[in-house]
């Protein structure tokens, strides 16, 4: 084997070793663990079984949490799309300098820790928070509403945390559209509205799809925001897994829950890839 053939492997050796030791091995180990049994008095017991998975999939309580996670992920994705598309479109129509500042405004929050940003929503939605202060002082309600620890609060928080990704993804797709296409549409008789619906929107769909995938996978697997805004009362999959492992020490079951969640994420990726390859607008993605 000559140097040229060996060189790439020499370069990747160290990072590859790190990944095998700290990424692949722990995941394989966790998966193996999910096939073990747990006994409250003895601890983890050997012997392969799919018991943990059947327990999860057969229990309406746990399935309810799975559906909730899915629901929250879908709602946060839709909300990001509804808020993010107009924002990205507006940004793209601004002059380059204004666009740079607006992009900064969208990007800057990414530098603030998710904990801090979710905490901000605690303050806004809390009993003494902004929303309740406004509602009470304007006389709409007499007593503060319970806004925290609800699915709605989680959706709001997740939408906020991941909106930037949706905006960036759509803005990138919009920026890739050749401006001559818009002129061509107008030149052929399309109004501004028709140009948007027949040219801009279809051509921005790859950005919408990519942004939706990002927001859905991140928000359905998010942990911090649901833990803070939903708490133990409104559990999602990631919280459930955390609770089972770290708080209740039922590692095999917690591991199984983690892999069900992983399956959900993988499912979303597969759906995305299907959309990418087929469908009416498949040609846009190629």
């Amino acid at each position: 084997m000559n140097v040229r053939r060996l060189a790439p492997w020499l370069l990747v050796a160290a990072p590859l070793a790190v990944f095998v030791a700290l990424f692949l091995a722990p995941l394989v180990n966790l998966f193996a663990l999910s096939l073990f049994r747990f006994d409250r008095s003895v601890g983890v017991v050997g012997g392969l079984t799919v018991e943990n998975y059947t327990k999860f999939l057969g229990d309406p309580f746990y399935l309810g949490i799975l559906w909730r996670t899915l629901r929250i992920g879908v709602l946060a994705t839709l909300a990001s799309l509804l808020l993010g598309y107009p924002l990205a479109y507006h940004m793209q129509r601004c002059r380059p300098r204004a666009r740079a500042y607006l992009a900064l405004l969208v990007l800057a929050p990414l530098l603030v820790s998710v904990v801090v940003r979710s905490f901000g929503w605690l303050v806004i939605l809390g009993p003494n928070g902004l929303v309740n202060s406004l509602l009470v002082s304007s006389g709409i309600v007499r007593d503060p509403l319970r806004l925290l620890y609800t699915e709605g609060a989680i959706v709001v928080g997740l939408t906020h945390v991941f909106l930037s990704f949706m905006v960036l993804s759509i803005a990138a797709a919009l920026a890739r559209i050749d401006p001559a296409l818009l002129r061509a549409a107008q030149n052929l008789g399309a109004t501004e509205r028709q140009t948007f619906f027949r040219v801009v929107l279809p051509l921005s769909l790859p950005g919408v799809a990519a942004g939706s995938l990002i927001v859905f996978t991140l928000s359905s697997s998010a942990f911090i925001t649901p833990a803070l805004l939903g708490g133990p009362r409104v559990k999602v999959m990631s919280y459930l897994s955390y609770q089972q492992t770290l708080l209740l020490s039922d590692w095999p079951y917690g591991a199984a829950i983690a892999f069900v969640l992983l399956g959900l994420v993988a499912g979303a990726v597969l759906v995305y890839l299907r959309v990418l390859e087929s469908g009416r607008y498949g040609v846009v993605f190629r």
Binding site: A180, L181, R183, A184, N187, G189, T191, Q194, L203, V283
Partner: peptide, 20 residues
């Protein structure tokens, strides 16, 4: 009079064919 209400048709340098 906006472009879409003018009786002109253009062939663009980049052709500007709608890729979708």
């Amino acid at each position: 009079i906006p472009p879409h209400r003018r009786d002109t048709a253009m062939v663009f340098q980049s052709y500007a064919l709608f890729p979708h």
